[in-house]
Design a protein around this nucleic acid. Structure first.
Lengths: 207, 207
DNA sequence: CGCTACCTTGACGCGAATCAAGCGGCGTGG
DNA sequence: CCACGCCGCTTGATTCGCGTCAAGGTAGCG
């Protein structure tokens, strides 16, 4: 396959940047192994988590396709192996492969829908609701470890806070409230879900 | 042109729905004349404004392309004329027209970027900052009337509040604060910008 | 072993939501 | 043509969620 000749794999350690906001894309990235976060920094420099990526996910296609600078940065959440596919090769591929183009469109349309839903949630839900929602979201994305209750992701309080759009202290507080209520267990950077039902309830219901 | 045979125009009065959230799309809509808002309702039924549309804008392509239900509704902000293009015709067109497909991708990628930026702003900015930002945004989208200061849109306080993600009362208060500060003038549902510079300042700076 | 980075917990204050009351414009009907 | 009622807006009072500040605590790492 031609792809093999046009890709190159790189290792990124936790915290390393795969690409940087407001630089121009030269190609796109495919996560071979590992987990990453896509973040955007606000005017004050505080970072907001936009999306996560895991094995098999592709990064940076939106900016590559629109020809703009990256609006986000991608950072490795754990040591990861990421392939790079050059811009020209990819665009060539898209131009000659209608099916691929269609899939890209679907990908983008879904991303957009998710972003819009997140927007509505952020505007209308309380931090408590968003916290519950975020835990369920993490489970959805990363799944469980072999014990079937521990979410398969290491996430710092800082990161969790930036996911739900809240201050770090608030994230800490709410997570330990959830712990006190027997909804979750906390093991350092791991979260174990004890009561999914209650979590769903907390995420949706208002008052 | 074939298009003429496959489109039909309809008139919508202010407040009328062009399409409804969680129904399936049968085609897409092109705004001939008028203005619309794209809204999403949260769990509690409170509506969140996702986007605006004006003459020449196309609506509903994201759901049509991804094949999902509409995640939003579109509502006429003023009496509008909207064309309908059938699903099959459009998909056919896209399949045989690479340039169109490319443009769609760019459109989607840009929408996505905007949504992500809005997300970060919503999470990190105060309501005051978002209010200023929203006024500038409205100016950007709808432009001025012939007097060169009045933004060319009728928007209720309720709608403005749902644009900035705040309560109606808060929107009222902030707008009249801005009026007291000589930044804007308010004429019913119209906003006149008196001091763009101060508006930009209020939108960005924190502390 | 101590340093640093990150987390936890409490106290406090502010910003914004909610509640409540009154206003004003507008359409309707008498 | 005016009175009435409705709807959306304004403004004030009150409440409360959450951010910020501050003071330790803990764990990982050189």
């Amino acid at each position: 396959m031609k792809l093999a000749m046009n890709k190159s794999c790189n290792l990124f350690k936790r915290g390393q940047y795969i690409f940087h906001e407001s630089t121009y894309p030269h190609g796109l990235f495919c996560i071979n192994r590992g987990k990453i976060k896509v973040v955007q920094s606000g005017e004050t420099g505080k970072e907001q988590i936009i999306r996560f990526g895991k094995e098999g996910d592709v990064l940076g296609y939106e900016s590559l396709l629109s020809g703009e600078k990256y609006s986000c940065s991608a950072v490795a959440l754990e040591d990861s192996s990421v392939c790079f596919i050059s811009r020209s090769f990819f665009l060539d591929l898209v131009a000659h492969n209608t099916k691929l183009a269609t899939q890209l469109v679907i990908l983008l349309a879904n991303d957009l829908r998710k972003a819009e839903e997140k927007l509505t949630g952020l505007a209308q839900k309380t931090v408590r609701e968003r916290t519950a929602e975020a835990i369920l979201f993490l489970k959805e994305i990363f799944g469980y470890e072999t014990d079937n209750i521990t979410i398969n992701i290491n996430i710092s309080r800082e990161e969790f806070a930036s996911l739900i759009g809240a201050a770090r202290e608030t994230a800490t507080r709410l997570l330990s409230e959830f712990k006190d209520d027997g909804i979750v267990e906390l093991y350092g950077k791991k979260i174990r879900i004890l009561n999914t039902h209650k979590l769903i309830q907390t995420a949706n219901v208002r008052i």
